[in-house]
């Protein structure tokens, strides 16, 4: 549950360019303390670069941010890094070293007091206390992710950045990571989660941002659905209605309808509290056997694809525009060349 007070992360018009290549541009958002915030986008959208920038590993090109209450400026780099932890997409463990040796190294790098107790606590949190002396190279991929998470939990960070934490994991291992993130939420840790697994984001995140080099939209998954799609209800009857238009057209709060299968109809409604009883009455009035009337929910995936498809269309029309211009300039060039000298 998100807490009150100053946000854990506040980002304003942040951009990062590598020469002429734009990694991300003009990004603004806030993450409240204790919130699990999902950062969604396709591969190459700039998610990892954003995380690295907020973790002080890369310097932003422009814009400003505060991370764990500190301004994102080079002078604050060490102090910010003391307050946050990152679990990169690849666990980044020393595979020849044991779990304990890996964690001991990082406990010392963070100058954790009573390292043995902290390591034990972190290992218990990820259910790996009995594997402490195992060499990391001998662990499964899921276990390595858990060791990486234990490493991130050594310092009790104010903000925890998880970059694609379930990437490459099988469903069972991914579920273990989800349970750990749920546990972090219960403990009030602010989690910044980048992922392209939309079901994961929908299940874990209080709010999500959909991002594709620039910020597309930020909000609660439900709010985003409502913002992008009309509310829809699916009606199922025992037999097809002879004249569905006469049943649904003109009903209060019903904005439209379309057939869905043999004896199914999807209604777009503005106010369910008004529309659903009216629809029920209308169906009963025409003698229809109603099997179900249920809200037809768009998933976060629908929201995501709607936005990403918009981007693709915009890119295509921009390219087409450019081609048209190039074609015109070629034509002008040809005309110039073929003109009188």
């Amino acid at each position: 549950m998100a807490g009150s007070g100053a946000p854990a992360l506040s980002v304003e018009h942040l951009s990062k360019h590598f020469g002429r290549r734009v990694a991300f541009d003009d990004v603004s958002f806030e993450v409240q303390r204790g919130e699990v915030f999902g950062f969604l986008g396709p591969n190459g959208a700039g998610k990892t670069t954003t995380v690295r920038t907020l973790c002080t590993l890369l310097a932003p090109t422009s814009g400003s941010a505060t991370v764990a209450g500190l301004a994102l400026v080079p002078a604050n780099g060490e102090r910010i890094r003391r307050r946050i932890a990152i679990m990169p997409e690849s666990p980044g463990l020393y595979l020849r070293l044991s779990v304990l040796e890996n964690l001991r190294c990082f406990a010392d790098l963070y100058e954790v007091p009573s390292p043995a107790a902290r390591i034990d606590h972190a290992l218990r949190a990820v259910n790996l206390a009995d594997r402490a002396r195992d060499v990391c190279g001998s662990l499964s991929k899921g276990m390595r992710q858990r060791v990486a998470l234990a490493r991130a939990l050594l310092t009790e960070p104010q903000v925890l950045f998880l970059d694609e934490p379930t990437s490459g994991l099988d469903p069972a291992a991914a579920r273990e990571v989800h349970e750990l993130i749920d546990e972090l939420r219960r403990r009030g840790v602010t989690v910044f989660l980048t992922t392209h697994r939309l079901a994961e984001a929908e299940r874990l995140c209080d709010r999500v941002a959909i991002f594709n080099t620039t910020m597309r939209v930020v909000g609660r998954p439900g709010d985003l659905r409502d913002r992008l799609f009309r509310r829809e209800y699916a009606v199922r009857t025992a037999a097809p209605l002879p004249e569905p238009g006469r049943v649904f057209d003109g009903l209060p709060a019903v904005e439209g309808w379309r057939p869905d299968g043999v004896a199914g109809y999807v209604l777009a409604v503005s106010e369910p509290a008004v529309a659903v009883p009216e629809v029920t009455r209308a169906l009963v009035a025409v003698g229809a056997d109603v099997l179900s009337i249920a809200e037809s929910r768009h998933s976060l995936e629908d929201v995501y694809w709607a936005l990403i498809d918009q981007d693709k269309l915009a890119d295509q029309s921009e390219l087409a525009g450019r081609d048209k211009l190039t074609g015109q300039s070629k034509l002008i060039g040809q005309n110039k060349r073929s003109g009188p000298e």
């Binding site: 690295r52 890094r81 980044g92």
Partner: peptide
């Protein structure tokens, strides 16, 4: 390298 550089 990344986890190490992300420490103080």
């Amino acid at each position: 390298l990344e986890p190490v550089l992300a420490t103080p």
